[in-house]
């Protein structure tokens, strides 16, 4: 290689800057976790007395259980439907060459460039015009408007690297369309499907602006947190916040572990 235009000094500076910015991203998360272990009703730093009493309260609170249950139901349904829709959406986005594809690509990504709060309000009007009563069911629909395009984008990255002649080869060797899908397309695209599903779940689990206007009388965890933040502090805010962070981390860890075990056999075969 020719001489690197950037010297060693610049390299170190960039690395240092990156570390600082990444740390900056985790400052507020750390703050929430710290606050959740504070005993006081009003947060003060340094923390005078540590306690886990707010966690105990949360564990026994029926309203917390309701909130979690609502959020979980919404997120699970969003995941299921989004993955189904986005799988075919991503094939149309990246796999097949068809007239109108360029337009389709742009239209599908359009919701991502939209302020979610405005989208939520527009949906609220839409539901009222259609005469649909808003509840957590409508929230599933609302979340999907924003999440399906993201999942399509994530899956498309995998689909782009998929070699369509593999499908042709399977087809040529006698496989039906369904067999091609089951034996070739799905197994090869499965990493994209899994990452799409994880993103769908967690983005729905944490979504606030769309839930705010589409859940009606039901309430998700982020909505409740927001209401408490704006109207008045309670130590349950950092506690529940820390809990949702922990559950997201736990899910990621779990998926990662499963992937490691399942993937070990696979990777042995398909070393790219």
């Amino acid at each position: 290689m020719r001489s690197e235009p950037k010297g060693r000094g610049a390299r170190t500076l960039i690395a240092l800057w990156t570390v600082c910015v990444v740390a900056f991203l985790y400052v507020p998360l750390l703050a929430v976790v710290l606050a959740s272990f504070s005993r006081q009703r009003y947060f003060q730093f340094p923390i005078a007395a540590w306690s886990t009493r707010w966690y105990e309260k949360a564990a026994h609170s029926l309203s917390v259980r309701d909130l979690v249950w609502t959020s979980l139901s919404v997120a699970l349904l969003v995941t299921l439907f989004s993955v189904l829709l986005a799988f075919f959406g991503a094939l149309a986005f990246a796999r097949y060459d068809w007239r109108g594809r360029k337009l389709y690509q742009r239209l599908v990504l359009l919701p991502l460039f939209f302020p979610q709060a405005v989208l939520g309000l527009a949906l609220l009007l839409w539901f009222s015009v259609l005469g649909v009563q808003t509840s957590w069911h409508t929230a599933v629909f609302a979340h999907m408007i924003w999440i399906v395009p993201i999942v399509i984008l994530i899956m498309s990255i995998q689909v782009y690297s998929f070699d369509p002649t593999l499908e042709e080869a399977a087809y040529d060797l006698g496989a039906s369309r369904w067999q091609v899908l089951r034996e070739v397309t799905l197994p090869i695209l499965s990493p994209g499907l899994v990452s799409g599903a994880i993103f769908a779940f967690l983005l729905s689990w944490g979504n606030f602006p769309l839930s705010l206007f589409s859940t009606g009388a039901d309430q998700t965890v982020p909505e409740w947190l927001y209401a408490k933040m704006v109207s008045g502090y309670t130590p349950m805010v950092p506690t529940l916040g820390a809990l949702t962070m922990a559950s997201a981390a736990l899910l990621l860890l779990l998926v990662w572990l499963v992937w490691q075990t399942v993937g070990r056999g696979r990777r042995r075969l398909a070393r790219r």
Binding site: D163, E168, A169, P187, I188, R266, L269, A270
Partner: peptide, 10 residues
């Protein structure tokens, strides 16, 4: 096939 189209996951 030209690029053989061997299934990488098998």
């Amino acid at each position: 096939f030209q690029d053989l189209a061997l299934f990488p996951h098998k």
